[in-house]
């Protein structure tokens, strides 16, 4: 089994890929997924989601999960 990793918007451009499956060996949390897949320093304002729910960087990841990384959402001024 593996973990599906998605990147969006400016994070996708910085990492240079939008979709990847990585082996779950050695992966415990969201930060491990970033290290294994992105291979560039983590941006300060990075957001993450596990299975389409917003997640903390230290949140545990399980085999078969989909983990997404993206910048803050831009809905516009109030």
């Amino acid at each position: 089994m593996s973990i599906t990793v998605r990147f969006f918007a400016s994070v996708r451009e910085r990492v240079g890929k939008q979709l990847e499956a990585i082996d779950c060996a050695g992966i415990n949390n969201v930060a491990d997924v970033w290290r294994q897949s992105a291979r560039v320093p983590m941006p300060d304002n990075l957001l993450a989601a596990i299975n389409m729910e917003y997640a903390r960087i230290d949140q545990p990841v399980r085999d078969g999960d989909e983990v997404a990384f993206f910048p803050p959402v831009t809905g516009g001024a109030p």
Partner: peptide, 26 residues
């Protein structure tokens, strides 16, 4: 929906394409 839905804006201007930065919280 503007703060929770995962949308990202990229604008095309004469200077090129740019990702719109989030507005500061008011």
């Amino acid at each position: 929906l503007k703060t929770r839905a995962p949308f990202w804006k990229q604008e095309q201007t004469r200077q090129g394409r740019r990702w719109v930065a989030p507005e500061p919280k008011v």
